[in-house]
């Protein structure tokens, strides 16, 4: 009896505390790993779910890298953490984006480790329709993440719009990833803001281009230091970002010993 009383008193207290807030149900369920220990450490253990994160492409030519990084974050949001389940990803684009960076290509997505079958692609006529669709989609808890790709700096994508997106993301716990191309950072309610550029890859045999490499800048973080930079390579098989092998790592330091042996060793390793 006494226990029951205290439980009901606790419930009442919880309800009162809930009422003291702004009345919204903040269903932010933890965070997900950004795929690299260093990245995770810099942003306090991982990217928050149910929040808005911004990714800026350094230059229009970096469209491939920036959209890949955003999609990989969405992939990590889907597969990492305790709430791992197969749920579709919505990729919202505009006609302008289709014209300027081409259309998403399934075999290439599969080559990055992203299942094209799990992507719903929505091509909107303009930024207004894009933001409207994004706000609707973020309220749908069945999606793991919504990628909103926006080229240029449309007037309606202002602080109010980003606040709306954040509220929509919080209401259902869906992660919003805003991919901005050909744009300068402007005030927003994003939890983190990244700038992505392509980085020279570690060459494969015969100087062939290697695995996808990214120059990642953490431009802003709501709660913590920013201004950090990484150069990371995506490992599709492990589904994580790894440090690229140092340039010249293929040539080892000559081992102490007879000169002829050392040269043979270096050659063998380089081959």
């Amino acid at each position: 009896m006494c226990v029951n009383d205290s439980i009901s008193a606790l419930d009442a207290l919880r309800a009162r505390i809930d009422r003291l807030g702004d009345g919204r149900d903040r269903r932010v369920s933890g965070s997900f790993s950004a795929g690299h220990a260093g990245l995770d450490a810099a942003i306090g253990g991982g990217l928050a779910r149910g929040r808005l994160h911004e990714v800026f492409g350094a230059e229009p030519e970096d469209a491939g890298s920036a959209s890949a990084f955003t999609l990989l974050l969405a992939l990590l949001a889907e597969t990492s953490g305790e709430a791992a389940q197969a749920s579709p990803l919505l990729w919202l684009r505009t006609d302008d984006a289709m014209r300027r960076s081409g259309m998403p290509y399934g075999p290439g997505l599969a080559d990055m480790g992203i299942d094209p079958a799990g992507i719903i692609l929505a091509v909107m006529p303009d930024a207004l329709a894009l933001l409207r669709a994004a706000a609707d989609a973020l309220r749908c808890p069945a999606l793991c993440a919504v990628v909103i790709e926006c080229w240029g700096s449309p007037k309606i994508l202002d602080l109010t719009a980003s606040r709306r997106l954040t509220l929509a993301a919080e209401s259902a716990g869906t992660t919003a990833l805003l991919l901005r191309m050909d744009a300068q950072p402007s005030p927003s309610t994003a939890e983190t803001r990244w700038r992505i550029a392509a980085a020279p890859s570690a060459p494969l045999a015969a100087n062939a281009p290697g695995h996808s490499s990214f120059d990642i800048d953490l431009l802003r973080r709501r709660a913590g230091p920013d201004g950090l930079a990484w150069r990371l390579e995506w490992n599709r098989d492990q589904r994580c970002f790894v440090e690229p092998p140092l340039p010249g790592a293929v040539v080892p330091v000559p081992a102490p010993g007879p000169a002829a042996d050392g040269g043979a060793l270096a050659l063998g390793a380089a081959g």
Partner: peptide, 22 residues
């Protein structure tokens, strides 16, 4: 119905682009 896409070879870098111009 979700389609089945061919899985890439392990260890290979991406051989097809992410964005295609058509």
């Amino acid at each position: 119905t979700p389609a089945i896409w061919e899985a890439p070879e392990p260890g290979e870098p991406p051989l097809r682009p992410l964005h295609l111009f058509d």
